[in-house]
Measured scan of single mutants.
Amino acid sequence: HTCEKCSTSIANQAVRIQEGRYRHPGCYTCADCGLNLKMRGHFWVGDELYCEKHAR
C-alpha cells in the first residue's frame, strides 16, 4: 500500500481509512491540528480527515 498523505510505501502497519485508501499510523492525523486519530476515529470534511473538534 501507499500512504495517501506522504505518498511513500507502507511497509508494516497500515491504517485503512476507506476502501483502497491507506495511511501510516503516524500519518493518520487531523488535517487541522495534527492530532493522531488512532483510537479516536475520524470525520470527513470534503476529502480531508479531521478530529471531532475540528470537523464541526
Rank of each mutant, 00 (worst) to 15 (best):
D32Q: 05
R16D: 09
C27K: 04
L49P: 08
Y22A: 06
I17C: 03
C6H: 02
L49W: 04
G34F: 07
Y22W: 11
Q18A: 12
N36P: 13
S9T: 06
C30F: 00
C30L: 00
I17P: 05
D32Y: 09
P25R: 04
R56K: 15
P25A: 13
K53I: 06
C33A: 00
R40Q: 09
L49S: 05
S7C: 12
Y50R: 11
L49M: 07
G41V: 04
A11N: 15
M39Y: 11
R56L: 15
C6T: 03
E52C: 06
I17Q: 02
H54P: 01
R16W: 15
L49I: 13
Q18T: 10
K53S: 14
H42Y: 04
L35Y: 12
C6S: 05
H54W: 00
Q18S: 12
G34D: 11
A31W: 10
H24G: 03
A14G: 06
C33W: 01
C33Y: 01
V15M: 06
G34M: 11
G46M: 06
N36I: 09
V15R: 02
R23P: 09
G20S: 05
R40L: 14
V45G: 13
V15W: 00
E48P: 01
T2Q: 05
G34Y: 05
C6V: 06
K5A: 14
G41L: 03
S7R: 07
Q13A: 04
Y22N: 05
M39S: 13
C3K: 03
L37R: 02
C30T: 02
M39Q: 12
A11R: 07
A31D: 08
G41H: 01
K5N: 15
R23M: 05
E48A: 09
T2V: 01
R16V: 14
C51Q: 01
N12Q: 11
L37N: 03
T8C: 08
P25G: 10
C30K: 00
N36G: 09
G41T: 10
L35E: 13
R40I: 05
S9A: 14
N12I: 12
I10H: 01
K53T: 12
G26I: 13
C51D: 02
H54L: 02
Q13N: 15
N12V: 07
E4K: 04
E19I: 01
I10M: 04
C51E: 07
K53C: 04
R21F: 11
I10V: 07
T29W: 01
H42S: 12
P25T: 09
Y28G: 03
G20C: 05
I17T: 05
P25Y: 04
R40K: 14
F43I: 10
Y28V: 08
C27Q: 06
F43G: 10
F43V: 04
K53G: 08
R23H: 05
R16M: 14
F43R: 08
Q18D: 11
H42E: 14
K5C: 10
H54D: 14
E52V: 02
S7D: 02
K53M: 08
C51Y: 00
M39F: 08
E48V: 11
S9I: 01
V15K: 12
M39R: 12
Q13S: 09
M39T: 14
L35C: 07
V45I: 15
G26H: 15
C30G: 02
M39G: 15
R16G: 11
A14E: 14
T8S: 14
H54C: 14
R21Q: 12
H24L: 00
L49Q: 08
A14V: 07
N36H: 06
C30V: 01
E19K: 12
N36V: 09
R23G: 03
R21K: 11
R16K: 15
H24I: 00
Y28D: 01
C27S: 02
I10K: 03
T29N: 08
A11L: 01
C51P: 02
G46I: 07
M39D: 15
L37A: 02
M39E: 15
Y50N: 06
T29F: 07
I17N: 08
G41Q: 10
